[in-house]
C-alpha cells in the first residue's frame, strides 16, 4: 500500500520510490547543493512559471516573482512536512509570492491614471498575434484586477489552471468550505466586472 502523508490537513499519496527520491532531493536542496537546486528547479519550473504567468497575466514582473518564489522555496524547503506534500507546498509558496505582487499593484493602481496600470500582458515573451484575442485578455485581466488578490487567485487556480477544489484550498491555505463560499462570490464579482466593461 502506498504511504499516506498529511500536508495542511489534506491527504497526499506518493509512490514509495518517488517519495524516497523526493526526500533525497529535499535534503540536498536544504544543504544548498547546486546540482540539487538545479534539479529541483527543473522539476517544478513548469508549474511555477505557468502559475505565475496566469495569475499575473503575463506580466513584466513575471521573472522577478518566479525568482522570489524559488528563492523562498530553497530557503525554506525544510518546512515541507513530507515528500508527498512537496508539490502542494510549491504551489502554496508560488501563490504567496504572487499575492505580494498583486497587493503591490492595487496600491499602484490607486495612484495611476491609466486603466491598464498593473493589468499585465506586457511580458516580452507573450505572443498573441490576434488583436481581438489580445483585447479579450485585456478585458479579463482588467476585470480580475478589480477583485481582491485572494479571490482572483482562487478563480485563476480553479478555472484557468484547472486545479481540484482541494488543491486550490491547499494552495490558498484555507478550508474547503471557505474556498467554495469565496469562489461563488468571486465568480459573481468577476461577471459584474466583465459586464461593466461591455
Amino acid at each position: 500500500m502506498a504511504p499516506v502523508s498529511a500536508a495542511r490537513g489534506f491527504l497526499q499519496v506518493a509512490r514509495p520510490d518517488e517519495e524516497a527520491e523526493l526526500g533525497a532531493l529535499i535534503e540536498a536542496v536544504a544543504r544548498g547543493e547546486p546540482r540539487a537546486i538545479s534539479r529541483f528547479f527543473g522539476r517544478y519550473q513548469a508549474t511555477v512559471n505557468r502559475l505565475v504567468w496566469r495569475l499575473l497575466g503575463a506580466d513584466a514582473a513575471h521573472d522577478d516573482v518566479v525568482s522570489v518564489a524559488f528563492e523562498t522555496m530553497v530557503r525554506r524547503i525544510r518546512d515541507v512536512r513530507s515528500p508527498g506534500a512537496l508539490e502542494g507546498w510549491v504551489r502554496a509558496v508560488t501563490v504567496n509570492a504572487t499575492r505580494m505582487e498583486l497587493r503591490g499593484r492595487r496600491w499602484r493602481r490607486l495612484f495611476s491614471r491609466s486603466i491598464d496600470e498593473g493589468v499585465g500582458l506586457d511580458h516580452p515573451d507573450l505572443s498573441v498575434p490576434d488583436e481581438e484575442q489580445r483585447e479579450r485578455l485585456r478585458v479579463l485581466y482588467r476585470a480580475l484586477g478589480r477583485l481582491g488578490a485572494d479571490e482572483r487567485q482562487m478563480l485563476v487556480l480553479r478555472h484557468l489552471e484547472g486545479l481540484e477544489l482541494t488543491e486550490v484550498a491547499e494552495a490558498m491555505g484555507c478550508s474547503l468550505a471557505t474556498l467554495k463560499r469565496r469562489l461563488v462570490r468571486g465568480e459573481e464579482r468577476l461577471a459584474t466586472a466583465l459586464g461593466a466593461q461591455r
Binding site: 505565475v52 513575471h62 507573450l126 484557468l160
Partner: peptide, 15 residues
Amino acid sequence: MRPLDEARKTLGEGP
C-alpha cells in the same frame, strides 16, 4: 467561466 477558459489557450504556459 468562458473568458478564463479562453485565456488558458491564448496566454500559453509561460515564458
